[in-house]
Structures are given as C-alpha cells and as structure tokens.
Amino acid sequence: MEKHDKIYIAGHNGMVGSSIVRKLQREGFTNLITRSSKELNLINQADVLAFFEETKPDYVFMAAAKVGGIQANNTYKGDFLYDNLMIQTNVIHASYLNQVKKMLFLGSSCIYPKFAHQPISEDSLLTGTLEPTNEPYAIAKIAGIKLCDAYRDQHGCNFISAMPTNLYGPNDNYDLSNSHVLPAMIRKFHEAKLNGGKEVVVWGTGKPMREFLYVDDLADACYFLMENYNNPGAINVGTGSDITIEDLAHLVKRIVGFEGEIVFDTSKPDGTPKKQLNVSKINQLGWSAKISLEEGVKLAYASFLDHSKN
C-alpha cells in the first residue's frame, strides 16, 4: 500500500476498526475513507454499491459486523445471521465490482468446531459441529471466508481472511447485556469497587480456557497481512497462549483493585471448554503478538476509566 492510496475501513467506530485507523495513521497513510453506520447502512446493497462507485477505494479493511457475547448471540440469532451475511456480502461484492486491489476480511475464532483439536489450526474449519451459543455469527463468518475464496477463484480478487481470537481494548463494548467476558469483568469489578460490593458474580464454572488478544496487536497483524500475505483461506491471529476464566477474573480483580469475593454462577453456560488458536502460520510469516495479557488489561482498564468519565 502506498501512503496516498485510498483505504476504506468498514466499521471504523468499532473496537477493531478504530484500532486499524490508528495504526494506519501512525504508519503515515493520509487518504483514509470512513463512514459511520448512520452515514452508510452496510446492510443496504444499493447504498453500499453507490458508496463504492463514488469513493473507489484501493484497499478495504472489512471490520464491520454485528457482534456480542453469549447472551446477545442467543437472543438475536436471526439478526446476527442476517445482518452479518448482508454486511459482508455487500462489501465483498462491491469490492469486486470496483476492482479493489486487496481486501482483508475479519472473522472470528468462533468459526471453528466446538470440540476442535487444540490449539486450533486453520484446517479445522468445517470439520465438526459449531458451538450452539454463537452458531449464527459463526456461520455468517464462514460464509464470508468462502465468498472471499470464491471471488479469488472466479474473478482473481486478492481477498484475504484473518481470524482473530477473543479481543479487548479501547472502544470495547461494556454493556453487560451483550458484551464479551473480559470487558464485562472490567465493568463488574469496577462498579463493585465503587459501590463497596462484597462479591462479583462471574458466569459459568470458571474452568473454560480462553485466549485474549489486545486489539492494537490485531491492528498490527492486519497491517502486516495486508503488506505480506496473499493466500486463500483463513489465517489465525492470536497470542498462542490461554488462561482459565477463573484466573482471568482474579487478574482483573487485582488490576481494578476490588477487594471482595468472586462467585461463579454455575447455572450459566460455559460455552466452549477450551479455545486457543494455533498461530504458527502467521508466526512463520514473521508476525507475533507483543502486548502481554496483564499489560493489555491495564491499558483496557485505563481506557474504560476514560470512557466512563466521558
């Protein structure tokens, strides 16, 4: 990518998109194209096609999606499947029609089977049953990967697909009704600390293992892949290490400074028992995560405090 190239970041107000914008700005790119969801409804194909015709981007980072945690995925299954299918299909198709030089499609580690061999390699895709609690979102993302590959095969499009592990960091969603586990913990422990609470309730048994990637590391990986990777299929992006939900809760408790107890609500679902990505493919290309979980949680909590003030 040249510094003056037109680069469209879909979903620039979200956690991932905003981090990609910051990364590109730090690298000296001066022609970034962004539209909020109020300015451009990516679910509407006519609007998306008109936008691409007008702006003619050279490169596209596809970071727009309808996202949420277990509760949101379970409650709004139709919305998660329909909205994500439409958003990504419209952007991918418009990128093809307008001869975008390269597009990066962002998926999620939830595309892999619930009981995939650990750590999960890219060739595990479609080898088993998905985790039911996020199946609609996963199916949409799998369709996105396959659509990118199909356009590559049929039309010669340089469309690549990156699958990040669980993300956290600035601009995360802290709404307890539809947030992911780590931001939900940050908010719960912080509010309990402020209110003098004696305990914080965490969903599930605490035994599931999860991998967490600070979002600025993902943005760095996306930039690296856009510059260095041109192959079909998914490529995993993660840290290569995981932690139990119980240990994560104790880490967040310590960083926030909450002095009460942690209680696990075993009536709530655990989700997948273990989900760690095999990141040897991207590591062999020359990229690896740089921000440790402890450092990342400290940065995320500082960002949350700023967000709370505003």
Rank of each mutant, 00 (worst) to 15 (best):
G196L: 06
V215F: 02
Y223V: 03
N166K: 02
G204I: 11
G144T: 05
C222D: 11
D216H: 12
E199V: 00
M185K: 03
V202Q: 04
S179I: 00
V237E: 09
T239E: 13
I243V: 14
Y151V: 03
H180M: 08
T239C: 14
V215A: 04
A192R: 10
L225Q: 03
E246H: 12
N171H: 11
C222Y: 08
C148K: 09
A184P: 01
E199G: 01
E246R: 15
D220E: 14
D217L: 09
T165L: 05
P164G: 07
D172S: 13
A150S: 14
A249D: 02
K198R: 08
V181Q: 08
W203T: 09
A249M: 01
P164V: 09
P170R: 07
E211C: 04
V200E: 07
Q154C: 05
V252N: 07
F189I: 08
I160M: 06
I160E: 07
L218P: 04
F224V: 03
T165V: 15
K146Q: 15
P208A: 03
L225A: 13
G196R: 04
N158W: 00
G206W: 10
A150R: 11
H180Q: 08
Y223K: 05
G238W: 12
V252Q: 08
W203M: 13
F159T: 09
N228Y: 02
W203K: 11
A219H: 11
A184R: 05
L147E: 14
F224P: 04
C148H: 09
Y151I: 03
V252M: 08
A192M: 10
L176I: 13
W203V: 02
E199Q: 15
A219D: 10
K207D: 14
